[in-house]
Nucleic acid binder design. Structure first.
Length: 578
DNA sequence: GCCGTTTTCGGCCCGACTGTTTTCAGTCG
């Protein structure tokens, strides 16, 4: 059973407990555990069977037993029991924004509302207002939320590549406005998460109302609330909610820190603060003894006041960064400027849109020192089928171009399919002629985790394979990762000296930050690649760097932050002419 | 239900907003 399914089961049970009026900290414990399990790079089902799932922060003996029961019986016994009391459909009702567990339970017990359809009928017939404490506004909200849900589901998350450029454009406009002083992007976009649901902007301004009005009148705004001196709220034409908050300069650091989050990071930070007699909020840091409030101009001051060094936004996920900060063990994170080359891109030879020469020129314009050309082996329908002869001619072309260039290395490579049996798409002698080989899976996704893992392991055992491409094949928001035993992959990568790629395509981000952290901690060499299919998408390197930073990686853990010479030395096979 | 450089028991973040209330509970981020 996948981590996501275990997490869903615990999360459902949390809601059932909540409906039942359980201690709210117990409910919180189930939700926390669900999140930790969902994000774990390890197979939690196996850990629970071995009795070692308790090493996950937030999972104790009780939850471990419930996971084992879930595996054995298909459902947690407490869930089965509670479902006799509350229909499972009530869990859906609690997902309506504005309707929580308490309200749902009353609607069920006093009006017999069990499903979303029941809820709509009751709101239509104005029966909700007959309950004490609930009125016409609640009915109005319920109907509005149900309509919205019918359209597209609740507040869709979007890829950061869709959201961040809009955030940057809005921030740039506001910065250029004469009324503005400081404008920063906050929220998940600043932390570099895979998806975002909205945009948070934090600003200080000489004339706050004018700056707020500038956002409300921005051409990207389809709807705007009333701009005031505290800020403004708009929705863009493509439906992204944007919140601008304007604050006095003296508390800019507090507000930026608060709205950058994450929620988990902030909770842990406040817990730490309380132990030091300090209470943290977006307005400042209060000494709980004296009541004295300290306001901070910068985030660094916020952290300093709590006795911590500055914590980079990408690390603020509540996954150990606060204790690392206390110990002075925060990593020095890799930056985009550290990246010296891109080892995965495509051209018109397979399914790319630009020529070899165009891709090289674009890489040089990015001030890289090297670029690997890695068209698909294409036995399975990626654009043109790159035959062995075509690949041989390509190798010659690449080498000829490389000889012409000074201070830049063009690398003759290929992204070779791994067949279901673990064999590769080209003959060994041809693979040996290549300077760089990425092995990837593009077909037969639905095989067992064991067979998929064996497939990768066979490829890593091949002497010509330098790197594994987009390990799990996931496409964020649209395709689940395929089942693969990441621990075994990591072990084999270490043993054979095979590198693992972080694919920077914003749809992939694969390795995920969780897998990348696991692999790098084990000592596997990581490569940041874009898998670009046109010159523009070489710029996706920024998303790869975001994943690397969220995986706590420093430049020295990433192979392509060094010169071509040093990169070359890190490959498992020493090649001629390298 | 989890967890421990102030605790193996007694804690477990903070504030804003909303709708319905005359002081607050529920919900949310």
């Amino acid at each position: 059973m996948r981590n996501a399914e275990i997490a869903d089961a615990l999360s459902e049970l949390a809601t059932l407990y909540e409906l039942d009026g359980a201690n709210r900290f117990r409910v919180l414990a189930y939700r926390d555990a669900a999140r930790v399990i969902r994000d774990s790079p390890l197979p939690v089902a196996e850990l629970a069977r071995e009795g070692t799932a308790t090493r996950l922060q937030g999972v104790g003996e009780t939850l471990q037993q419930k996971i084992v029961a879930l595996l054995d019986e298909g459902e947690i016994p407490s869930t089965t029991k509670l479902k006799r009391k509350y229909p499972a459909t009530l869990v859906e009702v609690t997902r309506i924004p504005g309707v929580g567990a308490k309200t749902t339970r009353r609607l069920f017990e006093e009006l017999g509302i069990a499903t979303l359809d029941d809820l709509r009928d009751a709101a239509d017939e104005q029966r909700i207002r007959t309950l004490k404490g609930l009125g016409a506004k609640v009915e109005e909200n319920v109907l509005a939320q149900l309509d919205r849900l019918g359209d597209k589901g609740p507040g869709p998350r979007r890829l950061i590549s869709e959201v961040l450029p809009i955030a940057e454009q809005l921030a740039a406009t506001l910065r250029a406005h004469p009324a503005s002083e400081r404008v920063e992007i906050a929220g998940s976009a600043r932390r570099g998460t895979e998806t975002c649901k909205d945009i948070d902007l934090i600003a200080t301004a000489k004339k706050p109302v004018e700056l707020a009005a500038a956002l409300a009148e921005h051409p990207l705004a389809a709807e705007a609330g009333n701009p005031g001196d505290a800020g403004a709220r708009i929705t863009t034409h493509n439906g992204i909610p944007v919140d601008l908050r304007i604050v006095e300069p003296g508390a800019f650091g507090n507000l930026l820190q608060h709205f950058t989050g994450s929620a988990d990071h902030n909770v842990q930070l406040r817990e730490l603060a309380l132990k030091k007699g300090l209470s943290v909020s977006e307005h400042g840091i209060t000494n709980t003894e004296t009541g004295k409030v300290t306001k901070c101009k910068t985030e660094a001051q916020v952290y300093r006041r709590l006795g911590l060094p500055y914590v980079e936004p990408e690390l603020r996920e509540g996954t150990g960064e606060i204790s690392a900060a206390r110990e002075g063990e925060l990593p020095e994170l890799v930056e985009l400027v550290d990246v010296r080359g891109d080892m995965h891109c495509h051209t018109t030879l397979s399914d790319g849109l630009n020529s070899l020469e165009e891709m090289v020129a674009a890489a040089r314009a990015r001030r890289y020192s090297y670029l690997a050309i890695t068209d698909h082996s294409a036995s399975h329908g990626f654009g043109n089928d790159v035959t062995p002869d075509a690949l041989r001619r390509r190798i010659e072309d690449v080498h000829a171009l490389d000889r012409k260039l000074r201070g830049f290395k063009v690398v003759a490579g290929s992204e070779v399919n791994i067949h279901p049996n673990g064999s590769l798409d080209y003959a060994d002698d041809l693979l040996a002629e290549l300077d760089w080989v990425i092995a990837s899976v593009h077909t037969s996704f639905r095989i067992s985790a064991k067979r998929m893992t064996d497939r990768f392991i066979a490829a890593m055992d091949h002497p010509s394979v330098d790197c594994i491409g987009h390990l799990t094949g996931r496409q964020i928001l649209t395709r689940e990762p395929y089942d693969v035993e990441v621990e075994r992959i990591v072990e084999k990568a270490l043993e054979t000296g095979t590198m693992l790629e972080i694919n920077g395509n914003p749809r992939r981000r694969d390795l995920s930050e969780h897998h990348a952290r696991l692999a790098a901690e084990a000592g596997v060499r990581i490569v940041l690649n874009t898998d670009a299919h046109r010159v523009e998408t070489l710029a996706n390197m920024r998303f790869g760097v975001m994943t690397a930073r969220r995986a706590w990686l420093s430049a020295d853990q990433i192979a392509n932050t060094g010169s071509w010479r040093s990169f070359s030395r890190l490959r498992k096979r020493v090649r001629s002419g390298g």
